[in-house]
Each structure stands twice: as C-alpha cells, then as structure tokens.
C-alpha cells in the first residue's frame, strides 16, 4: 500500500487542484484505467476546493492499494449544518467573491457523489468535516 499526505490551506485558491494533480500523475504511472482516473480527479478536485472555499485548513491522506484508492479529507472549519441540503444540486453557502470566480455553484458534493464508489461525510459544527471517498481501481 502507498500512502501520501497533503496539507490544504483554507482560502488559498492559487493552490486549489494541486492534490488532484499529484494523484492524477501517480495513477497514470500506475497505469490505472483512464476513465477511473477521471472520476478520481473530479471527486478529489471538488473535495479539495471545498476545503479551500469553506475551511481554515485541511489535511488529505491518499491511500492506494491494488484494489482501491481511499481519499480521506479532514478539515478544520465551520462544518455542515444540514448534510442532506449540502448534497442537493444547486445549494451553496459560498461567498459572493467565490461565486464570481465560478466556484460555489452548489455542484461540488453532487459531483463527488456521482464519481465515487463509497462516500462517508461526518461533520461537527464549528470543528470541521471528515470526508472519506473510495474508488475502485479495477473494473
């Protein structure tokens, strides 16, 4: 098994996507099917942007074994008040500034859900979120 750790700074949009980019390269080197890489990249990018847009800081742990990629994203931040609502397409709590940049359309979590095989989301208000995503690497 292979484990990599990354830190994600809340509010720093200049680096948003760096984790997804690193993981994409790794999966390509491992000759993972292109369609599966695309799904991982979409889910991970959205999860990463969520930390940047909503939390103060985050920590991402990526585990890859011969069957699965497991992406654990833990952040310190406001948490999610209503998880069902947050999973609804179009619902967003993003700031006006973030929306002007084309983020915060309320598509992040729905995009994540659509592209992973397993998703668990735990939230504690004013403490943070733990999001665990799993994608099967073999067809």
């Amino acid at each position: 098994m292979m484990r990599t750790n990354y830190n994600v700074e809340g509010g720093d949009f200049t680096k948003a996507g760096n984790v997804a980019s690193c993981v994409k390269k790794t999966l390509k080197q491992l000759n993972v099917n292109a369609k599966i890489i695309k799904r991982v990249v979409i889910a991970l990018y959205e999860a990463e942007v969520n930390i940047v847009a909503h939390a103060y800081q985050g920590h991402v742990t990526i585990d890859i074994d011969d069957q699965y990629i497991t992406m654990l994203l833990k952040d310190k931040g406001p948490g999610i008040e209503d998880i069902d609502l947050a999973m609804t397409q179009g619902f967003s709590t993003a700031s006006a500034k973030v929306r002007e940049m084309g983020f915060g359309a309320g598509m992040g979590l729905p995009n994540i859900k659509k592209n992973v095989d397993e998703l668990t989301l735990e939230s504690e208000i004013n403490i943070g979120i733990t999001l665990c995503l799993k994608v099967k690497l073999t067809e």
Partner: peptide, 25 residues
C-alpha cells in the same frame, strides 16, 4: 468550474469569461 469539471471532455476547447488561474488547474 464544477460544471466544467463534470462535463468537459479531453481534447475540448473551453469557452469562458473566467480569467483567473484556477481555470488552468
């Protein structure tokens, strides 16, 4: 950006009015 993440295919041109660096990522 999320719409593009979800729907743009490989080898496509992306037409947009966004100009900040996140569009490159």
């Amino acid at each position: 950006l999320s719409d593009v993440m979800g729907n743009l295919n490989e080898g496509y041109i992306w037409i947009t009015l966004q100009t900040h660096q996140n569009i490159m990522a």
